[in-house]
Design a protein around this nucleic acid. Structure first.
Length: 112
DNA sequence: ACTTTGACTTCGG
DNA sequence: TCCGAAGCCAAAG
């Protein structure tokens, strides 16, 4: 849990970013975005700068937010306004799904 | 053992 | 775009 979340964060490659919610899901704990944030805050040795809020928004305050942005830009992540360009830099965690994936776009969102 | 606390997210107005 | 409310739940104190 702690480990799976931390491991997921560690898989984000340089130049890519992910979000709290996506990491929680990838770690097997959907809906636990806050835990991801909590762990990030008190753990060390993680690529913390690569974790953003939904939509690519930086959720830190003050100086930390500036530092995060600088670090990401240094890795090649582009920003559009206050958000990272997720279309180009969002890291997709590998999922195990069988080959019966819909070939055409149209991603569907479950929920309620 | 109980309460507070988050670097959150989504929805509605 | 911004604001508030509700859902979420392990870890800290």
């Amino acid at each position: 849990m702690r480990e799976s979340i931390l491991a997921a964060i560690g898989k984000i490659p340089r130049g890519m970013v992910s979000t709290y919610g996506a990491i929680a899901r990838a770690a097997g704990y959907p809906g636990n975005a806050r835990r991801v944030a909590w762990l990030l805050h008190r753990s060390v040795g993680l690529p913390w700068q690569r974790v953003l809020g939904s939509g690519g928004a930086i959720k830190l305050r003050g100086d930390s937010a500036i530092e995060q942005r600088l670090r990401l830009e240094a890795e090649g992540v582009a920003f559009r306004g206050r958000r990272a360009d997720m279309k180009r830099h969002e890291f997709k965690f590998p999922q195990k799904r069988d080959s019966s994936r819909q070939p055409a776009g149209r991603a569907k969102r479950r929920r309620r």
